[in-house]
């Protein structure tokens, strides 16, 4: 009961935050809306007993990534008197919105009334206490079965560094 209530409240907060990200005129409000979404999703992770993921969500996303966003927004400068933008997509916006609404309603209807097999195999043989989201439960597979995936992310970091230099170095030479 508590779980359901918590889920409903937090899901609503998450959706409201996501809507604020898109709708807010002031980019700082958008960032704060994103913060609300990220934090409420973190609470949902806690409800799922994924404590480690919840902690990472708060530290990495709500902490580091959002701070970075705010830095960028502040550096670019928040211009409150932003002139009303020209509407270049007069009706496409509504069409896409309508299609998206239909898809969301369809998915919601499916979830409510559909007959689904969610995770038929995984849930049966995994002990709930073993997946309690502890650091050990995550670290052990990460450095045994998933070690290659873990190492492959190192390539991503190298690309980020090399790519940033490759793209930014040109402008600096110009200036």
């Amino acid at each position: 009961m508590v779980e359901t209530l918590l889920f409903v409240v937090m899901a609503l907060v998450a959706i409201a935050g996501a809507a604020l990200v898109v709708l807010a005129r002031n980019p700082v409000y958008s960032a704060l809306g994103l913060l609300g979404t990220l934090l409420s999703v973190a609470v949902l992770y806690v409800v799922q007993l994924a404590h480690m993921v919840a902690a990472v969500q708060v530290i990495v996303y709500a902490g580091a990534v959002l701070t970075l966003f705010l830095f960028v927004i502040m550096l670019i400068g928040v211009d409150k008197d932003e002139p009303s933008r020209d509407e270049t997509l007069p009706f496409q916006r509504w069409i896409v919105g309508g299609v998206a609404a239909v898809i969301v309603l369809f998915a919601a209807g499916l979830t409510l009334f559909g007959d689904f097999d969610w995770v038929p195999a995984a849930s049966s043989d995994v002990l709930p206490e073993a997946t309690n989201g502890t650091i050990e439960a995550i670290a052990e597979p990460l450095f045994t079965d998933w070690v290659l995936a873990f190492e492959a992310t190192a390539l991503l970091l190298t690309i980020a560094a090399a790519g940033a230099i490759a793209l930014a170095h040109y402008r600096r030479r110009e200036g």
Binding site: A149, L167, R171
Partner: peptide
């Protein structure tokens, strides 16, 4: 493993995004 496949896809794609923009 599909997660590994996704990682490989991302490593490759992100490098290609940068290469597409090399001529600044």
């Amino acid at each position: 493993n599909l997660v590994m496949m996704f990682l490989g896809l991302e490593v490759g794609s992100i490098a290609l995004y940068v290469l597409a923009g090399m001529s600044r």
